[in-house]
């Protein structure tokens, strides 16, 4: 009996199609990176008019694909809701998650995710129509508030109103796209989500000027990519790709000059190490020497990605703020590559 059970267990373990295997090998064999993104949040990840995915998160996916596969276009984007994102990643359907996801302890430890370095420091805010005449979130007693279910924002909202002793009616909605008609039709007075998401939603309104984001930021929302626990090599690849993009901005390496700078060793050893002209850092993470060069060439360094998708020049018009380099008064701080 014991033997049959053992045999059955062995057979089933073999059958079990978990993605515990070597993610790097899987991705290489497939020739494509499966990247979990949002179902559509302008500026972060949304298909453009030609059906091409564009955005901040999308560019990070492309950078990883470029580092691993040598081609930033070899990405299959897997759209996910707030509810499905972690399942898609842990079931092995996605290799990596870039979906404006807040890093929290329970997600890290209990959901068994390994969070990459934070690529966007965000916080939860409130958007209201200017016509309401509200100037502070403390004035929102009794308001109806549209909120995406299954997000950390839902919990922050409950905590914030509870600690301030004010009441509200939560109006749960499934995705950002559903929030828009409900908010505009007046089903809710307020829409709350990460401030970056508010900027993106507001930018897509017909009359963005009729709406304002309240000054209160009620939570810390460090948005970061994530991979599954248990594949340290894959984690390192993703982690250092994100850090390489941040470091590249600090060193002045852009998508335009990266070819030129990477052609021959220069005077700056930091640049040389990053671009594979000195040492063999790529080999440490199972890649070749040009991994970082390709990642930077794919969508530019961190600053370029920011400016192109969500920066002040775009419809979202988000300032760098906390997301500036540490040397510019922000808190982006890439660990040295050495």
């Amino acid at each position: 009996m014991k033997k049959t059970l053992l045999a059955a267990t062995v057979a089933l373990t073999a059958m079990a199609t978990t993605a515990q295997a070597d993610t790097l090998e899987d991705v290489k064999a497939r020739g494509e990176l499966n990247c979990v993104v949002t179902t559509g949040l302008v500026g972060f990840a949304a298909p453009d008019a030609d059906g091409q995915w564009q955005g901040f998160d999308v560019d990070f996916c492309r950078a990883v694909a470029a580092a691993v596969l040598g081609d930033g276009s070899k990405v299959k984007f897997i759209p996910s809701t707030g509810k499905t994102r972690f399942t898609l990643l842990s079931s092995g359907e996605g290799d990596i998650l870039f979906r404006n996801t807040t890093e929290t302890m329970s997600r890290d430890a209990d959901l068994k995710l390994s969070f990459l370095p934070v690529n966007y420091y965000d916080g939860q805010g409130f958007m209201v129509p200017k016509a309401l005449g509200v100037s502070s979130a403390k004035d929102l007693d009794g308001a109806s508030i549209c909120i995406q279910t299954g997000t950390t924002t839902e919990l922050n909202l409950a905590d914030y109103f509870r600690t301030n002793g004010i009441s509200y009616e939560p109006v749960p909605i499934e995705t950002n796209e559903e929030a828009r008609p409900n908010y505009l039709a007046g089903r809710c007075d307020v829409y709350t989500t990460d401030a970056s998401g508010l900027a993106a939603t507001r930018a897509a309104f017909e009359n963005p000027d009729e709406h304002m984001v309240l000054p209160e930021i009620i939570s810390k929302e460090p948005l970061a990519g994530a991979v599954r626990h248990g594949d340290d090599l894959w984690f390192d690849i993703a982690k250092w790709t994100v850090l390489a993009l941040i470091a590249a901005e600090e060193m002045g390496i852009t998508s335009e000059n990266v070819e030129e700078m990477g052609a021959a060793a220069g005077d700056n050893p930091n640049v040389n190490r990053l671009l594979g002209l000195e040492g063999d850092f790529g080999a440490m993470i199972g890649l070749d020497k040009q991994w970082a060069m390709r990642a930077i060439a794919a969508g530019g360094n961190y600053g370029e990605i920011f400016d192109k998708n969500i920066g002040p020049e775009t419809a979202l018009g988000i300032e760098r703020g906390l997301n500036a380099q540490w040397s510019d008064g922000g808190i982006l701080y890439a660990a040295p590559i050495r």
Binding site: K83, T149, P172
Partner: peptide, 10 residues
């Protein structure tokens, strides 16, 4: 829905 998502106990 929400409990599942917040706790990850699918």
């Amino acid at each position: 829905g929400i409990s599942l998502n917040q706790t990850g106990r699918a």
